[in-house]
Write a protein that binds this DNA or RNA. Structure first.
Length: 604
RNA sequence: GGGGCUGUAGCUCAGUAGGAUAGAGCAACGGUUUCCUAAACCGUAGGUCGUGGGUUCGACUCCCUCCAGUCCCGCCA
């Protein structure tokens, strides 16, 4: 209904301007225009509401209801408005409640039933070249030689969902995995590798990542305790940076080992992402320093080359620096992030030609990104009409409110967490099958519990407002009640059930004769028509939990309808009308679950 | 010391853009099954929206004070 909302806003704007042409207070009216009509705060008020009469009352020093009377009279003269609206009702101190005509809603519903995107319009935003805008979503980003853990879960799931929403809207989306594949830690890893496997490095193919994680720990311990090891590790870093063959080979082997494990996780989560690690930007690091220096932003302080930041100070009250080059000449993550940002905005073939870059990382990096963005701004690396967003998110906590850990106090591995969820989903399923005396084959049980288990983990994460920390609880996320994946999946299963039992052929289900009379039908229709606006709001604010909230409400509305309204045992026209509502609900739900990265089920 | 974020029902959380009586789920209590999967639905109860000010016709929402929790603050990412 986004299009109708826009049309209506425009018509209201016209009418307002017409009625105000004799008056002068233009600046105040500009403010009013921004917020002419809103969604009704409650269903009983209608579809939209207009609150400006209360504001106008102050400006004109007249009774708001009087103003509303005059304004409504004018509005009714506007043909577009009378075409769309049933009535304009003045309520309370001077609100105007707006109700759309039934036939307008039915036309919308019909058009959404035919639309493969369930009514979501393609974005009409274009870049300068006339192509759709290009959005880079930077997410997941695990580190080589370290196991992926729950910390990577949120980034991966939220990033994937945001990317999918932009794709649905017709943008060109580049999903980038900014893997930690470079840095001083490789010095110690390679040195350890050489110590253990001699210099031929053939046997490393046999190492598994779990060993590699252990391997990392051992290397770190040696690095911290053995001076001689430390010395060789530092030498190894230099060798690696100079591109010495053996060192590069060892580095690649380490990366490959890790990649295998990452890919396995992405396969299970069904995540598509392009790997482009930090090392990709190595060739551009020097030019970052040069460019900043050329633009007179670079200041040497205590041997390090820094850009000092506005509005940020350190403990001593001095301006905070962003270190671009360390005193030993090495670069750090800030430099890499700047190089990446610059490259991504650069024109092809020397860059990605992006219009918007979205970074999905934990909230702890908020300061870091604020600093990086500020420097990029100062250096003029963010082109006109382009933007960067940091999408921060809170911690995953255990039920105790502390950081999620195993009983032994270890970080929980992502693969174990997923397996656990699937296992619990399977136990629940088997219990239920037993209880209902149902017989299902192994394939059904495996697939259903997999979809529920993985879906539950994803949904639990996405349904939270990402800013806040959230408590990870298998019991809650797998619960069949409440705002959970199983509840949504069950609603879809109900719809599939109706579809199976329906004996009218698709060809005989004519859209033209649909009509509605039941209150719950209209509630469902209005809920269905809000879908596109939810998607558009997420595109702006990058809050996927809004989609989850919407879906939960949609399912609640549908389940009430399902419970109280007969669908299959009614006369033919009513039956077709109701089946069509089921169809659109199913399509919206399935499409949305896909946007959240969750698979659907026909039966469960 | 500076900065970010958070504080809403017993618990876990929603609450675009300031709008009319503050919204769910869980937990508690009660009800609904000749019917499309009851994994559902309906009802009852539960709130000084951390505190105190301010702006406004109107504040959970915007501004300031304070309190509590948490994260970040120079060569790790």
């Amino acid at each position: 209904m986004h299009v109708i909302f826009k049309k209506l806003t425009k018509s209201f704007e016209e009418t307002l301007l017409e009625s105000l042409i004799k008056h002068e207070k233009k600046e105040e009216f500009e403010k009013i225009r921004k917020n002419l009509i809103n969604h009704a705060s409650k269903e009983e008020f209608g579809d939209y509401q207009c609150n400006i009469c209360l504001v106008l009352s102050k400006i004109y020093k007249r009774n708001p209801r009087e103003i509303a009377n005059t304004f409504v009279k004018k509005l009714k003269e506007n043909k577009n408005i009378s075409y769309l609206c049933e009535n304009l009702e003045i309520a309370g101190p001077g609100f105007i409640n707006i109700k759309l005509k039934n036939n307008i809603l039915i036309e919308e519903i019909k058009s959404n039933i035919k639309c493969p995107r369930a009514g979501v319009p393609l974005s009409n935003e274009k870049s300068k070249s006339g192509f759709p805008k290009k959005i880079i979503v930077d997410f997941s980003s695990p580190n080589i030689a370290k196991e992926m853990h729950v910390g990577h879960l949120r980034s991966t799931i939220i990033g994937d969902s945001i990317a999918k929403i932009f794709e649905l809207r017709g943008y060109i989306v580049l999903r980038l995995n900014h893997i930690g594949d470079w840095g001083t830690q490789f010095g110690m890893l390679i040195t350890q590798l050489k110590d253990l496997y001699s210099n031929d490095l053939k046997e490393i193919d046999k190492i598994k990542i779990s060993d590699l994680v252990e391997f990392y720990k051992v290397s770190k311990k040696r690095f911290d305790n053995e001076i001689e090891f430390q010395y060789r590790s530092r030498e190894e870093v230099v060798k690696l940076q100079n591109g010495e063959k053996k060192s590069i080979k060892a580095w690649k082997l380490l990366c490959n080992q890790s990649r295998k494990e990452f890919d396995e996780i992405y396969r299970r989560l069904n995540i598509k992402i392009k790997e482009r690690g930090e090392s990709f930007y190595n060739p551009f690091l020097k030019s970052i320093v040069n460019d900043l220096n050329y633009k007179k932003l670079l200041i040497e302080d205590q041997g390090a080359k820094c850009v000092f930041l506005d509005g940020m100070i350190n403990k001593e009250g001095n301006p905070l620096p962003l270190i671009i080059q360390k005193k030993d000449g090495g670069f750090n993550y800030a430099t890499t992030d700047l190089a990446a940002l610059k490259y991504r905005f650069n024109k092809e073939p020397y860059g990605d030609n992006a219009n918007r870059i979205i970074y999905v990382t934990d909230h702890g990096q908020a300061n870091h990104f604020a600093a990086v963005f500020q420097v990029a701004q100062k250096a003029n690396w963010i082109p006109e009409n382009c933007e960067v967003n940091h999408v921060p998110f809170g911690l995953v906590q255990g039920i105790d409110g502390k950081k999620l850990k195993t009983r032994e106090g270890e970080t929980i591995k992502l693969k174990d967490l997923l397996s656990e969820s699937v296992k619990k989903a399977k136990e629940d399923l088997i219990k239920r099958l037993d209880h209902e005396s149902r017989n299902e084959n192994d394939e059904f049980i495996l697939n259903t519990s997999r979809v529920i288990g993985i879906g539950a983990v994803k949904y639990a994460d996405l349904s939270q407002n990402r800013i806040t920390n959230y408590q990870f609880s298998f019991e809650k996320m797998l619960s069949l009640n409440g705002n959970t994946a199983p509840y949504l999946l069950y609603t879809l299963v109900r719809i599939s059930g109706i579809k199976r039992k329906n004996n009218i052929k698709e060809d005989n289900m004519n859209l033209e004769s649909i009509s509605f009379s039941h209150d719950l039908e209209w509630k469902l229709i209005r809920k269905l028509l809000k879908f596109d606006e939810v998607i558009i709001s997420i595109e702006k604010d990058l809050m996927p939990n809004r989609l989850c909230n919407y879906l939960f409400e949609l399912c609640q509305t549908f389940n009430r309808f399902y419970d109280q309204v007969s669908i299959l045992k009614v006369e033919i026209d009513t039956k077709i009308s109701r089946l069509k509502l089921c169809e659109l609900t199913g399509k919206t739900l399935k499409l949305s679950l896909d946007l959240l990265g969750i698979e659907s089920l026909e039966r469960m």
